[in-house]
Design a binder for these strands. Sequence first.
DNA 1: GCGGCCAATTGATCTGGATCAGTTCCGCGG
DNA 2: CCGCGGAACTGATCCAGATCAATTGGCCGC
Lengths: 253, 253
Amino acid sequence: MTQASAPIDLSQLRRSCRACGLLELCLPAGIDQAELERLDSSVRDKRTLESGGMLFRQGDPFHALYVVRSGTLKTVVQDADGAQQVLGFHLPGEIVGVDALAHDTHQSSAEALERSSICELPYSRLEELTSQIPGLQRQLLRIVSREMVAEQSHVVTMGRQQAQERLAIFLRSLSERYGRLARDTTHLILPMSRYDIANYLGVVVETVSRLFTRMEDLGVLRVSRKVIHILRPDMLGEMCGAGGARERAGRAS
Amino acid sequence: MTQASAPIDLSQLRRSCRACGLLELCLPAGIDQAELERLDSSVRDKRTLESGGMLFRQGDPFHALYVVRSGTLKTVVQDADGAQQVLGFHLPGEIVGVDALAHDTHQSSAEALERSSICELPYSRLEELTSQIPGLQRQLLRIVSREMVAEQSHVVTMGRQQAQERLAIFLRSLSERYGRLARDTTHLILPMSRYDIANYLGVVVETVSRLFTRMEDLGVLRVSRKVIHILRPDMLGEMCGAGGARERAGRAS
DNA sequence: GCGGCCAATTGATCTGGATCAGTTCCGCGG
DNA sequence: CCGCGGAACTGATCCAGATCAATTGGCCGC
């Protein structure tokens, strides 16, 4: 490890991050700049997907992790009887493909919701690097664990029985995540369809549509197709937690 | 201690596995027996929990991973407004605590559903070992990824809108998991309460109770409190996939 | 501008599961 | 053996959200 004394050039770093995406993830791993640059050079591969393009499909052999550089992806599973479930949406800077680490095969499909640019990290190269850079290994573990926690929040969201709470939680979390990309967290652009949102939340499209209308009537937000303007973040927050409704189902044991 | 050339003594290995639990997880990592034994000796710490006892609580600092040796645990999250959500049940041989890797803090609580014996793996010790045993690191990554995939299946389950499908999927998966522990997969013992099951599936207790009765009436299984006897695994399987019902909600995009 | 197409919205109706209110079952301590 | 207490089950009712059926709105190619 290098001079703890010389502080890392953050702005330059950010630029590389923007350029590749992975590096952002390595930041907390205590990796110094020289290593970062070395890393960057090895993962510069990029891909561009049109809207609807598939990054990988369920069952594909695993050979790389991916970082979204721009655009948005969704991950979807299709089970035996053809039912689909949207697992998540992936914004710029977020990682995709972690589900394949366990079985050497992708357990879900990743599809672009709009023109997207993706940074590909061949796993063979990554393994090489992790053996050289001790902090990276740990960081990788953190990332996967973080993905697991994200999946858990999804479960918690779907555990809510009021559809309005689910949607409110979804919008709030989206707003928070956009916060890393834009200053204004009150204007959301939803690249996913109403069908995707509905499926993600475990309700039907009509319900999502009606809820948007209801929220608009309540003065919580303004809707115009792909754009949501949150007028009252406080009210949205209230709607997340048992919004005036009675207690949740089955408090355990 | 053995030589790397000699094939691993599987039966002896299994015994150690049973004894500690972690080792099972390392099996595919290409670790030789000498290393396994070294590993075993360092993680032999055990704990016993009575029914209702907490292994860790949401917010606790992270310092160890755990493997269930005997008994059953449940993991639960409690969000801001006090709503609880059961995330999962953990049978003997399964790992718990992975959710803390990302944030150095447990994101959920783990509670024993019956008298349980737990094997504790201090993370500091684990880190030490991973630096010495290359395959272990990779294996750890796999394990966390596997946990993530498990969480994804939970999402898929909760995405089903027919409560009966959810319960059927739950029972089937439980039956499969018990298969690793007992020959007979048609007799399930449910250590968790109906409340836990309901909460896990995102329905209310009454619904679970009624569904059990309905399934019994259909001749799919026999219920007597904690014991479920699956009479017709084939019918149970059918009930998992759009059992005669119409198509699932919002096929995406 | 016009027509076709598809996503989104709205309206009307139906129903599965939530809610409310007991009742039954079973283990346990006296 | 009896009475108590908590979990599980059942029955009656209600309602949020699913389903079915149009309608609207926006975009694109002609």
